[in-house]
């Protein structure tokens, strides 16, 4: 990738960081907190996604 393109992408990402930071900070400080039971409810589908991607990788390797 050409250097100027890398700089443009880096600037774009930095702008996104700058724009997202206040929202992230607000959500961390004032957002609802989950219990361990709530997080287990997230771990199940995300774990399934991980296993599914491993399956897809194995499929394209064979």
């Amino acid at each position: 990738m050409e250097f100027w393109l890398k700089v443009v992408i880096a600037l774009m990402l930095a702008m996104m960081l700058w724009r997202l930071w206040p929202a992230a900070k607000h959500m961390l400080e004032h957002g609802p907190k989950g219990t361990s039971k709530d997080w287990m409810g997230v771990a199940l589908p995300i774990g399934a996604v991980v296993l599914f991607i491993v399956f897809l990788v194995m499929m394209v390797r064979n």
Partner: peptide, 10 residues
């Protein structure tokens, strides 16, 4: 799943 907001943003 609203409790995930802060984690996802970070």
């Amino acid at each position: 799943f609203s409790f995930m907001g802060g984690f996802l943003f970070v």
